[in-house]
Design a protein around this nucleic acid. Structure first.
Lengths: 227, 227
DNA sequence: AAGCAAACATACTACCGGGTATGCTGTCAA
DNA sequence: TTGACAGCATACCCGGTAGTATGTTTGCTT
């Protein structure tokens, strides 16, 4: 079942295929992407792909899972930081919008997958994979909700409809998914600049007066967490 | 070529098919939606669909165009209002987020279509339709940019990267696309409540202190424009 | 009532794409 | 050296789908 475990020798191949699939799925969507096109992207044939992944859906799920891992990893520094909830929230937002550009293909697939409503046609096994993913998504949102609630409890911000505001916040943070196209000369500086701007918008959206000083403070906090 | 014009007698059929297609495309995406499934949705067969639309792509484009029309119509009251730019902007945001829920299926298709990158495989005719749509999208964004710039000129808000901020604003306004699922008992009150919340988030994101009084004022302005 | 076209339904074709079965080649252990 | 298996490529099968060709019915005109 678990394809990756058995191929201890050549995990690079696995990664290559995963990356190629992320590219194809993100550009054309699940249905429009053929296994052949993924193989062509790699300069190989179906045989290779099917050697590492049992089916198209498994390949897609692997890409999606990878995207999820990137997401969780992106917000972890902020989530685990010992700091006021508002600052943790900003750090989470910054990390996620940054990761959004860094792993754009995986993230686009991730968002795509969420809008897929599959019913009867899918087998029970496929449904379980879908449910597992939805659970992960909920867990992810729950982390935001948790820190949001804490910030509200601190009196740092006022919130009307919790669910609605948290989703607006998340959407604002995810925004690079829609317009970001990777360039060869893109680097950490550009990502950081964009993430700053996005973080500012999102925090202000919550009603927080997010001054340049607080942004600075957040970046210092990040350095502390990294070390 | 223009299918709708020739069927002056039975435009309801045309609309039925369009609505059914919007449902299917929004739930399953372009590639995964078959003409047969659209027909089944209508309780008919392919013959009916192909009688009104020359091809699947034409049907899709028709749905997308309709979504565009809804979008332009939604922001028109705000765009054309004689009022300070900030208030016009808020009215545009409110109108669009409202329309987002009102015409959810069309809007989801609209957003989907924007992420489709088709290259070589498509014919020249199809490419032209794509380009036309991209132009419309640019024109739409341009209206927001125009009012945003005017508001900034008024000193009502400060903006860093114009393009980035306008896109964050738009994303915040489009947010219902991701989570809104229509219920039978949904009505104007619910839409308005949600739109209020979204508008508040978006305006605050720009750095505007969007008080309840200003929101009230905006609604009064809306009534004036409607009359 | 007769003719004709709109408004479909049905039957069929051609092709594409997921999945599989099979074949080929290098490598490594015994 | 010789299996044996990973790591693919190639060839093939078959279900699903866009598009078409051909009925068939309904309504409207003359």
């Amino acid at each position: 079942m678990g394809a990756p475990a058995r191929h201890g020798k050549k995990p690079e191949r696995y990664e290559e295929i995963l990356a190629a699939a992320a590219q194809c799925f993100s550009q054309q969507g699940f249905a429009a992407t053929s296994i052949d096109s993924v193989a062509r992207f790699l300069g190989s044939t179906k045989g290779r792909v099917y050697h590492y992944f049992p089916s198209k859906l498994d390949l897609f799920n692997a890409v999606r899972d990878r995207g999820m891992e990137h997401s969780f990893e992106a917000i972890r520094p902020g989530y685990e930081a010992k700091a006021p909830a508002v600052d943790r929230l900003a750090l989470m937002a910054h990390g996620q919008s940054y990761a959004m550009m860094q792993h754009i293909a995986y993230m686009q697939v991730l968002l795509d997958g969420l809008r897929q409503r599959r019913y009867g046609a899918t087998t029970e096994f496929q449904r379980s994979a879908m449910l597992r993913h939805l659970e992960q998504r909920d867990a992810f949102e729950a982390r935001y909700m948790e820190v949001l609630r804490a910030a509200a409890a601190d009196g740092a911000l006022r919130i009307g409809d919790m669910r609605l505001v948290s989703r607006s916040f998340l959407a604002a943070v995810n925004v690079p998914v829609f317009w970001y196209v990777p360039r060869a000369d893109d680097g950490p500086e550009k990502f950081a600049r964009f993430s700053d701007e996005i973080t500012q918008f999102a925090m202000q959206g919550l009603g927080v007066d997010w001054t340049p000083e607080r942004m600075q403070h957040m970046h210092k906090l990040r350095e502390l967490v990294d070390a």
